[in-house]
Design a protein around this nucleic acid. Structure first.
Lengths: 139, 139
DNA sequence: TTGTGTGCAAAATCTTTGCACTTCG
DNA sequence: CGAAGTGCAAAGATTTTGCACACAA
């Protein structure tokens, strides 16, 4: 999980402006240690900065995703979640009850990938992996 | 990949009626060896049975997903795809260029799961895994 | 100062629901 | 026959776009 400062730095380093709206969305993302819908993020962003529009939330989430500072979360009931993310190759582990999200790394899929590649003839380039379960508090 | 006959049998075995609309959706799913949006599936379903409504496509896809005869496909640009699926624990490998989808099985994640569980305290119950790459034809 | 980014309102999508009519079993 | 399922139209929800204005750098 990144800090606000780091995320802001990454934004500006990538040549994007650090605006009020973007700051508010970043704070909203970090406020919650789970994943949230754009609408929920918008609500929290407004508590930091009441003028933020929903449109900017969408645009900022897209931007942060492209910079890998946020990640899209896929759930069974619609796919409208985002969670803050660290740089590098990470995946999320989600609590199905309270929505808490933690990151983990070190998914070693190479044996699987090699096998699937040779079985199918595909060239595998990326993968989507999410784990779902119960967090310690919800158990 | 299941055949139409198998899918129909599963449907009826589970206590659901085998209707024209459901048959058309099943055929539409099997027509294409990739994943498709509800709208695309609707278009193909209509070629089998012009009277099928989009609503029935949505309802049938939900039903088939719950029976594990179809699976929701998650893509970066929206998450609105479905592909036919075999019963049992399988995952999909998708071609990012043409959308072809093949299933594979035997994802051995247990070492990873055990590690993540002990690191996080979560009880992992399920996982979402999708591979994306280029199919033989698109390479 | 200047062009990137914003908010608003409206448009475009996508998905679900209510309801009378069909149809499968 | 009777309940499950359907199609239509309309409602609801979600996401995108156009555009004048604001404000980071």
């Amino acid at each position: 999980m990144s800090t606000e400062h780091e995320m802001v730095r990454q934004l500006s380093q990538a040549g994007y402006r650090v605006t009020r709206a973007r700051r508010a969305v970043i704070r909203a993302l970090l406020d919650d240690d789970g994943y949230s819908t754009p609408a929920q993020i918008h609500a929290r962003a407004r508590s930091h900065d009441p003028g933020v529009g929903l449109v900017s939330v969408y645009r900022t989430l897209d931007l942060l995703s492209s910079l890998r500072l946020a990640r899209r979360i896929h759930t069974e009931d619609g796919c409208h979640g985002y969670a803050s993310a660290s740089r590098g190759h990470r995946h999320h582990l989600l609590c199905r009850r309270c929505g808490a999200a933690v990151e983990f790394e070190g998914c070693d899929l190479s044996p699987l990938l090699r096998r699937v590649e040779s079985e199918t003839g595909y060239a595998v380039e990326e993968h989507l992996l999410e784990l779902v379960g119960l967090c310690p508090a919800c158990r």
